[in-house]
Amino acid sequence: MSAALEKPARFALGPDDKPIVIASAFIILLLVIGTAYTLVTAGTMTLLSPNYLLQQLQIGAFLGIVAAGMMLVILIGHIDLSVAWTLAASAMMATTVGGPWAIPTGLAVGLAVGLVNGLGVAYLRVPSMIFTLAVNAVMRGLMVAHTGGFAPQTAATDLMRFLAAGRVGGIPMAIFVWVGVSIVIAVVLKRTVFGRTIYAIGNREAAAYLAGMRTRGVIVAAFAACGMLAGLAGVLLAGYSTKAYQGMGDAYVLPAIAAVVIGGANILGGSGRYAGTVVGVVLIVLLNSVLSIMQMPEAGRQIIYGAVIITMLLAYRSGRVHQG
């Protein structure tokens, strides 16, 4: 608005903060709409009960962990389409190995896939879009060969179940895991050389390289971290549903990208705050939940989901000065 441009606001928001504020406002709007709906139809306020909100955060934890890794990769200006089967492969290998080594195996699988992605992108300089797509197909083939195309019969270990579905003091463990991952990622992005290099690469890789940054190592590390977080999400998801199954990661790739972008990160890399990604995840999970409470058919859900993403991004753009 022109008035806002003439008089600087007292609490001026940085360009990275605006999306977070808008998305948070939309989350509150969702809660209001959902509550109004349940008040009218059932006379209850289910959406505002702590139990419901905690449950949403628990479901959001899986997407949140995938999105945290995806954000690292998006910030350097790349994308990881292999998370779907990295997630599934980690879950399947973790349940196959079982015992105390289940979780380390799952994380190691994710890390290994992430390293392959990173090496291909950083050293062979294959566009990440296609390299990770091919790795995804390979992982899918390997896992289908491993399981014979059926859901593996092996079950998740007790520790995996506890981490995903257990509760401590009434709060789901998965939320603690998500919070732990979030703190690490936020600190790394804000306070470490590695984190700042990620932003620098995303802004202009040549400049980062000329400034003496170890760009290739950082790219490999970002992909490795993304793979490992996908692996962690796979381990947790297997724990949540007590076993691994085919295509368990398919529903996480595009929503993870959407969550990162709704959080205000630039899809071309270089800008975006981690808090935005968390808000984006909560928004997507809550949107799905409210729509299913309203018994919206799948057709309407998909249309609303797409429309929300477009509207949010248009809202972030409006009022911003023309960018070069």
Partner: peptide, 27 residues
């Protein structure tokens, strides 16, 4: 039009409109 006038990256635009197209198809 969304890419040009909304100034949203093609990959994100089509990620969202793809969901809309699937919604219409399901409808």
């Amino acid at each position: 039009c969304i890419v040009v006038y909304g100034r949203i990256q093609p990959i994100i635009t089509t990620l969202a409109t793809g969901a809309i197209a699937i919604g219409i198809a399901l409808f």
